[in-house]
Simulated assay, not measured.
Amino acid sequence: MIVVNVENAEGVENPHGVDVRKLLAMEKVSVLHVSLKPGEELKKHSTSVDAFLYVLKGRGVVEVGEERAEVKKGYLVYLPKNIPHSVSNAGSMEMSFLVVKVV
């Protein structure tokens, strides 16, 4: 069994300068917890694997390619590999979400 508390999870350096914590890293999947303060964002970037974003709290705007959607707690977004995407906190409170990367 693997049990991880986000508060004790290893921080991940990132070019966005935001709070990212590694919850799980296995051969075919990784799970990251991301927290964005109001006004913070994950700048447009792409990944070499498919990923999913699941909003835990707060609200924000996700852009995938040319598409844009407002998201909030309970929303899931598919992030296809090699397609640029970004996430910004559009609210007045912290936004947090999981990013699940799959091979």
Rank of each mutant, 00 (worst) to 15 (best):
M1V: 10
M1E: 07
I2M: 11
I2H: 14
N5P: 06
N5D: 07
V6M: 11
E7S: 04
N8Y: 02
A9P: 07
E10A: 14
E10C: 08
G11E: 15
E13D: 10
P15V: 00
G17P: 03
G17V: 02
G17Q: 04
V18K: 01
D19I: 11
V20M: 14
V20L: 13
V20Y: 04
A25T: 12
M26Q: 11
E27N: 09
E27T: 06
K28D: 14
V29P: 12
S30N: 03
S30T: 05
V31G: 11
H33I: 04
V34F: 02
V34N: 07
S35D: 14
L36R: 04
G39C: 04
L42S: 02
K43E: 00
K44M: 12
S46R: 13
S46L: 12
T47Y: 03
T47H: 13
S48C: 09
V49K: 13
V49S: 07
V49Y: 11
V49P: 11
F52V: 12
F52A: 07
L53T: 02
Y54D: 05
V55Q: 14
L56G: 07
R59K: 15
R59Y: 04
G60Q: 07
G60P: 03
E63T: 10
G65R: 08
R68W: 09
K72H: 11
K72E: 13
K73Q: 15
Y75G: 02
Y75S: 15
L76F: 00
Y78A: 11
P80S: 05
I83K: 07
I83F: 02
P84V: 11
P84Q: 15
H85F: 11
A90V: 00
E94I: 09
M95G: 13
L98C: 05
V100T: 14
K101T: 14
